[in-house]
Every structure is written in C-alpha cells, then in structure tokens.
Design a protein around this nucleic acid. Structure first.
Length: 152
DNA sequence: GCCAACGTTGGC
DNA sequence: GCCAACGTTGGC
C-alpha cells in the first residue's frame, strides 16, 4: 500500500464536504497536470491512504485522511464545455485526464499546519515542502506518513 | 492583493 | 527545438 498527499482548496472542496458526500466518497476531478495525472492513473491503488491537505486558506495544512476507493478512470469533467475544467483536447475516445475516487477515513484531531511541517528536519524530503513545489498530488513515504501521524 | 515559481503555449 | 509571454498555484 502506498501513501499520498492531495491538495484541495477548502472553499472548493473540503474534508467536511467529503465527509458529507453519499458513501463519504467523491471523485477527484479537475487535475490538469501531467505529473499528478500520471500518479493517479498509473500508481494509485484501491486502499492507498492519502493525507487531505487544505491549500489557499487561512491555515494551510493536513486536515484528514482518505483512501482510494476506485482506481483511475477518465475525468469526464474534461468533456463538458460548461465545466470549469473543460479541455477541448480531451475526448471520451482518447481521454487526456484521469481521476480516482476517494473515501473519507477520518479527520485529524487538529490541523497539522504547513508552518509546523516546515519546522521538522525529518520532513526535509517531503515533496510538499520542497521549494516551488506546486503539485496538487504527491507521494508520501511510509516513514513520513508515520512521522506526521505521530504529530497529531 | 502580491508575487515567486513553475507549466504551457505558440511564434519563429 | 528555443524561449518569451502568459496563466496558474498557493503561501504570505
């Protein structure tokens, strides 16, 4: 099993939104970056665990845990001209973009903020903390995963 | 709201 | 294939 971190702007989709979805499951649509797509399409497996990260908000940080509930399939929002993430170059015969479904596991007892994560020498290699990193999906090692959970 | 860092686009 | 211009991300 592998571990991941996935960013979401809470104003668009928060950990509480995921909690309130039917089946506590939602598709992770709208990823329009090739590196992030490749991770979802090629590497994410059912049962993989992910940190749910809130970005672009008052206190950016890790707020909860979710798991992969369905492996990759075409992101149909790319086919819809009215969708914010419409991509005319992607079509259902040969889709460019893929997504997975994620299921709520739990909220953390507190937000583990980006500020706090930055202070930890043990997390120096965490992709989230590397300079200029803008990936919305990134891998987390088992050691990093355990270390972060122990901060809770 | 600012702006650094980065990815993408498109002219050449 | 280069690279300037542009758009986006996301912390602050």
């Amino acid at each position: 099993m592998r571990y991941w971190l996935m960013k979401s702007e809470p104003e668009a989709f928060s950990i509480d939104d995921l909690h309130d979805r039917p089946g506590q499951t939602e598709h992770w649509d709208g990823v329009r970056n090739y590196q992030a797509r490749n991770m979802m399409r090629d590497e994410m497996k059912i049962g993989d665990q992910m940190f749910f990260y809130h970005s672009n908000c008052d206190e950016p940080g890790i707020v909860g845990i979710a798991e992969v509930a369905r492996e990759s399939y075409p992101d149909f929002t790319a086919f819809d001209p009215d969708d914010k993430h419409f991509d005319p170059k992607s079509n259902s015969d040969k889709p460019t973009w893929f997504m997975v479904d994620v299921r709520f596991v739990r909220k953390l007892s507190r937000t583990i903020s980006l500020r706090e994560l930055r202070l930890k020498v043990e997390l120096a290699e965490l992709a989230l903390l590397r300079r200029g990193n803008r990936l919305s999906i990134m891998p987390v090692s088992e050691q990093q995963w355990q270390f972060i959970l122990n901060l809770e």
